[in-house]
C-alpha cells in the first residue's frame, strides 16, 4: 500500500568528480520519485552510481546539477537550501549500513537512544523510545547487549531501530542484507517493508542481493551513472 506523496523527488540530478580530461560522471540527468510506503531498490553493477545516488540523497555529497526535494522541502536547487545538513539528516533521514555501524561503546538501546538525545529528548524519554522500538522489532530481550554480543541479524535490527528512532520518513539502506544469510536477509527486508507501510516512510535500498529483489516495490537499474534502458 503506497500513497502518492513523493518523499524523495529528484529531477535531472547529476554528480561529476574532477574536471576536463579527469572528469568522471558518477551520476547524470537522473530522475527518481520514492513515495511514502514504498521500498525502492537501486540495482546495478559496481561503479554504476548507486552509492553516489545514496550519498546525494543522504546530503553527504553535493550534487553538481539538478533539483532535489526531500519530504516536501527543497534541499538542492543549484545550492543547498539548508545550511545545516547534519541537522537535516538527523531530523529527516535514517541510515542503515551493510555492517550495521552500531557504536561499539554503547549497548543496543543506547545506540537507538542517542538519536533521540541528539534531537534534544531528555534521557528518560530517549530511553523509553529506544525500548519501544526494540519491542517493535522484537529485540527487547537484547536491549542491554553490546554490539559485539549481537549476531549479524540482531545487530541489523538494532540498526533499523536506530534509523527509525528519529521518526524520519526517508530511510536509506546501503546493502542492508549483504552480510546476512537468506532467512535473516528476508526478515530484515520484511522489517523495512513493514516500517515503510506502517510509518508511511520512503525506503531506498542499494542492493546486489537477489534474494530480496521480489520484495521490492520498485527496482531502479543503474548503469554508468544513468538509468539502465535495457533493464
Amino acid at each position: 500500500m503506497q500513497t502518492q506523496d513523493a518523499l524523495v523527488e529528484i529531477r535531472g540530478l547529476g554528480k561529476h568528480f574532477g574536471e576536463g580530461s579527469t572528469r568522471v560522471n558518477a551520476l547524470a540527468d537522473f530522475d527518481l520519485d520514492v513515495h511514502a510506503g514504498e521500498v525502492v531498490g537501486l540495482l546495478g553493477p559496481s561503479g554504476s552510481g548507486k552509492s553516489t545516488l545514496l550519498n546525494l540523497v543522504g546530503c553527504i555529497l553535493e550534487p553538481t546539477a539538478g533539483v532535489m526535494r526531500l519530504d516536501g522541502q527543497d534541499i538542492w536547487n543549484g545550492e543547498w537550501k539548508r545550511k545545516d545538513l547534519r541537522r537535516l539528516r538527523l531530523e529527516k533521514i535514517g541510515f542503515i549500513f551493510q555492517s550495521h555501524n552500531l557504536l561499539p561503546f554503547l549497548n543496543a538501546w543506547e545506540n537507538i537512544a542517542i538519536v533521540r538525545t541528539l534531537l534534544g529528548d531528555p534521557p528518560a524519554a530517549a530511553q523509553r523510545r529506544a525500548h519501544e522500538l526494540l519491542d517493535y522489532l522484537k529485540m527487547a530481550h537484547r536491549r542491554d547487549a553490546m554490539p559485539a554480543q549481537l549476531s549479524g541479524g540482531e545487530a541489523q535490527r538494532v540498526a533499523i531501530a536506530r534509523a527509525l528512532a528519529n521518526d524520519s520518513r526517508i530511510i536509506l539502506a546501503d546493502e542492508p542484507t549483504a552480510a546476512l544469510d537468506s532467512e535473516r536477509a528476508l526478515a530484515v527486508i520484511e522489517l523495512l517493508r513493514t516500517a515503510a507501510l506502517e510509518r508511511q516512510a520512503a525506503v531506498l535500498v542499494v542492493t546486489h542481493d537477489d534474494k530480496i529483489f521480489d520484495r521490492l516495490d520498485k527496482k531502479v537499474h543503474l548503469r554508468d551513472g544513468r538509468l539502465d534502458p535495457n533493464a
Partner: peptide, 15 residues
C-alpha cells in the same frame, strides 16, 4: 568509523 557514523546520523561537531 564510530565518529563517521555519528556525523552521518547527524551528531554536531560539538558532540
Amino acid at each position: 568509523r564510530p565518529i563517521a557514523t555519528l556525523k552521518l546520523i547527524g551528531a554536531p561537531d560539538s558532540v
